[in-house]
């Protein structure tokens, strides 16, 4: 593998990290309030607005059920409006953010719903306003689950970011397709896959560590916290 190819891989990795980091940050920024709203706006809840809850839920479901590659193509006019172009790394962040937001919102919603209802009752008995309950009770208590959920979201975004390569998005996926596949360079393809695996491992390890740090429910060090997928059942 020539030196220039190694540099290509380095730049592609930076591109990928850039795309994923920005879209994960924007997705969290948008997904956090949306998730909180979804978790607290059903009938009888803190910010009860059942009609809006159903509408928001429907939009989230619609976005989540659209295959990502179709979403990328479908929103090209919107991407061009926001980013000024529909090709390149910056442009790719638009569909990535749009895919990440509802995903993160659902994760936040699930994490907040897991918070013991007794805590909401206790906070109400102290005279807390609904906003205080969200900021001082629900979000802090859900933090370990939110950290694990966001880890999952970042890992998914790494996968999505490889797909935007197909429409000129740049990054590792783009490199893999143009060099590994179209120019038939299996060593580049292998390097791309190895870097992606390493990235996913790194993100997951970091997320697990963070969730453990945030989780005060078990004595420090014990593997007490259940991950999101085992909690579904």
């Amino acid at each position: 593998m020539s030196l220039s190819i190694v540099w290509l891989i380095v730049y592609a990795t930076i591109d990928t990290l850039y795309m994923v980091a920005i879209s994960a940050a924007l997705g969290t920024l948008l997904g956090l309030p949306l998730g909180i709203f979804l978790a607290t706006s059903r009938r009888g809840e803190l910010f009860a607005a059942p009609a809006f809850n159903r509408i928001a839920g429907a939009i989230v479901n619609a976005t989540r059920s659209t295959p990502f590659i179709i979403l990328v193509v479908a929103i090209i006019p919107f991407t061009r409006l926001v980013a000024g172009t529909s090709i390149g790394t910056t442009a790719a962040m638009v569909p990535l953010t749009i895919a990440a937001t509802p995903f993160i919102a659902r994760i936040i919603e699930a994490a907040i719903r897991e918070v013991d209802h007794g805590l909401i009752e206790a906070a109400r008995s102290m005279g807390a306003t609904p906003l205080q309950i969200v900021l001082k009770v629900l979000v802090p208590e859900a933090m370990p689950a939110i950290a694990l959920g966001l880890t999952l979201a970042v890992v998914s975004l790494l996968g999505y970011s490889a797909m935007v390569g197909a429409v000129g998005g740049g990054g590792l996926g783009d490199l893999g397709i143009r060099y590994g596949y179209q120019r038939f360079m299996p060593d580049v393809m292998a390097a791309v896959v190895i870097v992606l695996i390493a990235l996913v491992q790194g993100v997951q390890t970091l997320g697990d560590w963070l969730a453990r740090r945030l989780n005060k429910r078990a004595p420090q060090g014990a593997p007490e916290f259940q991950s999101l997928d085992s909690k579904e059942f």
């Binding site: 013991d116 007794g118 805590l119 906070a123 008995s125 102290m126 005279g127 205080q132 802090p140 005060k216």
Partner: peptide, 30 residues
Amino acid sequence: RRKIGMIFQHFNLLSSRTAFGNVALPLEIA
């Protein structure tokens, strides 16, 4: 409600806060 304290069967303490932080919560809220 700030003049009516309440305690619960299952305590309903915030797991993310220390003993100090839990007692501080109603004061922060106020």
